[in-house]
Design a protein around this nucleic acid. Structure first.
Lengths: 215, 215
DNA sequence: GTTTGTCGAGACTGCTAGTCTTGTCAAGCG
DNA sequence: CGCTTGACAAGACTAGCAGTCTCGACAAAC
């Protein structure tokens, strides 16, 4: 996800013998400018992180990056793709949840980390802007779904380990627990009517363990 | 909420003696056309309910209602306000939660009803469209906040009654319980990655009671 | 019959996503 | 060295939509 794909096949080959080595001339012409690539991602992140919630247009991204609009669209299919790529480029390493051997501790840490990440201005406005864009761009909404799926899977694994150790009931609905965590998170994050502090994280984690323990 | 307000003061009175009967001439000129008002709300609902998820523009609403755009903007401040008004106009009566005298039963019914309401095509696409609009329109986001607050309050009251009867711990975080219900609801509703069926509703309600009971 | 305010119709502005065009530059090939 | 290919910056252009403005018609009060 953090490495981008070109939106269409490059190097106008017709590939008449599929399954072959990429035919004789794999590439000619000027090479892709890696600096421009980075500049676009960085500009997107900068604008996304702007606290004023400004709309983040493609024009702005291109101008900030010192790049033509076409260069953006050559490498990403839509604005949303740029934004998501910019965000995951920064954030998709740290999805491996904690593993202390005790479910309550793991879950507390996971929830606390999740809540905490959204408290920092930069990430918060970026995430908010992303959600805003995803609401209007079906393509981005798709990407967003797989983005969130990654997070959910990490949490699901954490819970699964706990269940294997007998800390959750064998018939506990892990997906529902996962969605209770991320549901509360996004709901409060986007509406902003309630806190996402460490205290809340602990209470939520503890109550989920209590409700689903297998004794 | 279901009765609309004019976007600005009507009938150019200056009201020099506040707290008085509305001064001598409360209104002159042609009266508001109630039929047009209804037609707009109905058109909005129709378009919102269209299964194809089409964008629902103001032009379309006005054209469908057989009304000039200005007539829409005379009575509502933004497109989002129209949409929200159209939706609440239909839905805001039934917020009084059940009251059977037993928390588990009440909560199950409340959650089940909430989930169920979003399964019907019309309401579902309307709600989705509304969320989409709220993401880009701060004004609507505000209206949306008070809309959701009404629902949250109904659920909070339900829980509060249960706590008074001793079915929840005295220190249970009712707001967190509320947000777990609506968090799961919106999260699954908007992402569509998991079911919102009666089974889920029951499991969620039961687990929340279990986690927060006061014994 | 004059004033005030609503009505339908539609032109208009302003903003943005995404495409297309143009002229330039860099890399490989002969 | 010249030719071809494709990336590049700049920016014109199209299309869709929110929201405003203008116009002529009409209706209610006075």
């Amino acid at each position: 996800m953090s490495e981008t794909e070109p939106r269409t096949e490059r190097s106008g080959r017709t590939d008449p013998a599929p399954g072959q080595a990429p035919s004789a001339r794999p590439h000619t012409g000027r090479r892709r400018n890696e600096a421009a690539h980075r500049a676009i991602l960085d500009a997107a992140l900068d604008l996304l992180a702007a606290p004023d919630g400004a709309p983040v247009t493609i024009d702005a991204i291109a101008r900030t990056a010192g790049v033509g609009k076409q260069t953006v669209y050559r490498w990403w299919p839509s604005k949303g793709a740029v934004l998501l790529d910019a965000l995951t480029d920064r954030a998709d390493q740290d999805v491996d949840g904690p593993d202390t051997g005790a479910l309550r501790t793991d879950l507390r840490a996971f929830v606390a980390t999740t809540f905490d990440a959204a408290q920092h201005g930069t990430t918060a406005s970026a995430l908010r802007a992303l959600a805003r864009e995803a609401a209007r761009d079906p393509h981005l909404a798709d990407l967003m779904r797989s983005f969130t799926a990654t997070r959910r899977n990490a949490l699901h694994d954490l819970l699964s380990r706990g269940r294997d150790r007998g800390e959750l009931a064998g018939n506990a609905d892990l997906d529902l627990i996962v969605d209770q965590v991320y549901g509360v998170f996004w709901y409060r994050f986007l509406l902003g009517h309630g806190p996402l502090d460490q205290d809340t994280a602990e209470r939520l984690a503890d109550s989920l363990v209590t409700a689903n323990r297998g004794d």
